[in-house]
Design a protein around this nucleic acid. Sequence first.
DNA 1: CTGAATCCAGATGGATACTG
DNA 2: CAGTATCCATCTGGATTCAG
Lengths: 103, 103
Amino acid sequence: MRAIQDAMDVLNGKWKISIISSLCCYNTRRFSDILNDVEGISNRMLSKELKELEINKLVKRTVLDTQPIAVQYELTEHGNTLKTIIFNLTDWGIEHRKKIVGK
Amino acid sequence: MRAIQDAMDVLNGKWKISIISSLCCYNTRRFSDILNDVEGISNRMLSKELKELEINKLVKRTVLDTQPIAVQYELTEHGNTLKTIIFNLTDWGIEHRKKIVGK
DNA sequence: CTGAATCCAGATGGATACTG
DNA sequence: CAGTATCCATCTGGATTCAG
């Protein structure tokens, strides 16, 4: 019961799961790419949520020495342990949509 | 990418996962029981979140004809399909806590 | 391109009191 | 017991602008 709260503390926020999901699919992804992947998110929120994920050691941030600057995000080893859950959740989302309505 | 959003739309809110988690463990559970299970939640929020879960067909509400009135909550068949994810998430929460600190 | 800063509306949620 | 109603502080998050 306590453990589930610990997990949710890390995954809270409107966009965390979607961001992780994006990184799951692509292994490595740039800021602007994620901005496109996650429909509706603003750069303000993406920046903030990525920072939180980084603090919690789920995401690794790398600045590429290009011009203009590019920044690469990827899941850490620890972040990768979420993959199974993300995939299950995705499957569930698909089934759920089918079940609720032909929305 | 869209599917994950569909799933999160249903599971949004600070307490949804914890509530479902409580129902997972006990099969059937009363209002005041869940209030105790989910540490920190207020009756106002519990009421509201349960209602949303009911609308989304994840939870079934039954009024027992006792005095004083008791209300029973349980996962629907559809809600039960979340069990695997909840369990995985719980396991992950335990591992995560170990990894982040000896908190 | 990748953010950080500011401004601000609306949603979230706690505390408390009240009802059937 | 199982909520509902009200009040109110805080948080969330969008839009926009600015900077390295």
